[in-house]
Design a protein around this nucleic acid. Structure first.
Lengths: 225, 225
DNA sequence: GGGTGAACTCAGCAGGTTCTCAGGTCGCAG
DNA sequence: CTGCGACCTGAGAACCTGCTGAGTTCACCC
């Protein structure tokens, strides 16, 4: 069991390291966001213990960036109770568990083992956006747990939007990304397909995931509408 | 992993795009210097593949301008020329790596991965001014945490002001920057749009972010009013 | 060949956006 | 106080954008 500890608070980090080593874990350490990202990207861990307070990229940034890089190693976050952020933030960002300082070491180990047990199997790489999910491997789209059947174009468009969720994408970007970089037809197709998509993923569920940004393009709302 | 490919040679660009997409990258394209600058400024990429030969601003210019704007995304330059000069030039200008055409795709991917691994210092790409924020990528404007919806012109004007916050900008500068360098209508539009903006970002929040400097122009106060 | 489904085009419509214009207001200098 | 120019404001017309339903083409399958 390989664990990465990311903590700038040396004494605490050292205590955890010793404890985990005694418990039979193989431990590596990082003391800032940058090193943590590098280690987590380059090596394989079974879990990451991630403190929020870090120099060069705080815990939230590290976590966000990890998930963006599609690295799904289970993350246990350490938070100070009086912090600005609360645990819901951590969960939103893809943390799998969290502990509030001060915590008991026994609890830490227990949670860590639970995480590893839970997270050991390969995680499905599914794009999610609120209750809207898209599994590129299976080519499946679900909204609120219900499968939605899409044509290839509709699917391509949705995947593109989901890979840019929260960002505004222009029609020409969509045409380049989903149609063909050399597409020379009527840009209106995009509007038409947005409409098809809305009909299938928004209307039946009374949501508004795909926003129109007049004069600019479209944006998939992060919350899924 | 988001990569921007800047290349005017369509077939090559297309080949790279497809290859990188297969490798799991999210790819965006620009085919001239101007588009490249825009994309690189407005969006966040993990790396940029930049050809030297470009219409509207060659690769060197693009690179220089990017670094001047303090955008540190890793850049891999492509050039057909072979020689030490080109290479040292590219490095001097802030390129992070360099490939001479023709190159093997495998090498390109390897170098790109190495670049991304090395990483760029993360920077938040949102303009802020007191409790007023503008996120160019998401095209979102918030005041006091509340989203404000703007029309394209209003948005353009606000972005311009925010990029010059604290400075007095004249109406003709605004017209050049937000409208068209060749705009020939009534300069009163600026006043009109300043009013629209104030109505949306100042009045409801009882602030005065946009100051009028009589006889000079306008200034966005650094504190956000 | 007829039927089906997907991709795309087209043209009309609705409503938002942009810009002009004609006053009104304000600040400043004489 | 007065006049002037700079700026503000409200209204409205022209314009533009995106939405929509209908229709065409095309490939595929029975």
């Amino acid at each position: 069991m390989r664990v990465l500890i990311v903590d700038d608070e040396r004494p605490l980090a050292e205590t955890i390291r010793r404890g985990l080593t005694d418990e039979g874990f193989v431990v590596e350490m990082a003391h800032n966001g940058q090193d943590a990202l590098w280690a987590a990207t380059e090596k394989r861990f079974d879990a990451i213990v991630l403190d929020i307070m870090l120099p060069r990229g705080n815990g939230y940034q590290v976590l966000t960036e990890l998930r963006r890089r599609e690295i799904w190693t289970p993350v246990l976050m350490l938070t100070a109770k009086d912090g600005d952020y609360d645990q819901t933030d951590a969960f939103d960002l893809g943390a799998d568990d969290y502990l509030t300082k001060p915590f008991s070491f026994i609890v830490l180990v227990a949670r860590l083992r639970a995480l590893i047990r839970r997270g050991a199997p390969e995680r499905p790489v599914v794009l999610a956006c609120g209750d809207l999910t898209l599994d590129p491997v299976r080519r499946r789209v679900e909204r609120a747990g219900q499968e939605v059947s899409l044509t290839p174009r509709e699917y391509g468009l949705l995947e593109f939007l989901m890979r840019h969720k929260g960002d505004v994408v222009t029609k020409s970007e969509i045409l380049e990304g989903v149609w063909d970089p050399a597409f020379e037809g009527d840009p209106n197709v995009v509007e038409v397909y947005v409409r098809y998509l809305r009909r299938k993923i928004d209307a039946p569920f009374e949501r508004r995931a795909i926003e129109t940004v007049r004069g600019m393009g479209y944006r998939l709302s992060i919350t899924g509408g």
